[in-house]
Amino acid sequence: MSTDVTSERLSLVKTAPAAPASPAARRGRTRRRLGPGRPIPYGRALGPVLLLAIWSGGSATGLIDARNLSAPWTVVATAGDLIADGRLQTNVWTSAERAVSGLAYGVAAGLVLALIAGLSRLGEGVIDGPVQIKRGIPTLALIPLLILWFGIGESMKVITIALSAFVPVYIHTHNGLRTIDARYVELAETLRLSRPRFLLHIVLPGALPGFLLGMRFAVTAAWLALAVVEQVNATSGIGYMMGLARTYGQTDIIIVGLVVYGLLGLLSDGLVRLVERKVLSWRRTLAD
């Protein structure tokens, strides 16, 4: 262990005279620890709990104005009310539907284009350039143009989300396809694999880790795009609910919306990671 080595080295240069026979001197054999030390149980929860405590304390003492930030208990009560009258579920459902369909179109497009560009030189020449140019333009900057083309309805929202999700899937899958180890290509040649078998057994499994990494970025990008497009003339969804709450100065509802966005983001990322662990179990054995 590195800490042992460190303390061993320190003991060599230590010149302080030993105080004889006292318990402190005997304990002095174990040198002062320089590393961060043992992990604290539930240590990761410390920061969030501290923030929550400051928020609660501030609200209770009136240091935090409820017009700027509602008290935690108000937020919880509001969430309860919103669930009781069904508004929260309806809006979350609408938002999730938008995000999922946008994500589905985006992932499908990114995957297909990456395969075409990754598996043929002609495909790469035709597709890769435009995608790299598209990558340079933030998708959210395209919203004015998309509104002119598709209006302010549902299709504009889904297309914006799809465009955001498509880029990371394309980039990482294409990279995965292009960086398949040449040694495996050689192996396939000596085994005389046909081209379809080569694709099935070597190229696609080899590109899978890249695709899944792209998926994780795509999910994050989809939620970001969702939050933005729901500010544009939506009549339903979490963003609409929050926008309406802003008009009436209901910070409690805005906080509920933020918490829902956060939970959805964490949940979907966890889902992709779960799939990653299942599908790439051959890799996990190394980490275990």
Partner: peptide, 18 residues
């Protein structure tokens, strides 16, 4: 020189490859 097994295939599938 390297065994050159496909890491994403189990031992049997590596042998039956092709």
């Amino acid at each position: 020189q390297d065994a050159r097994l496909l890491p994403w295939k189990r031992v049997l599938a590596n042998v039956t490859l092709g």
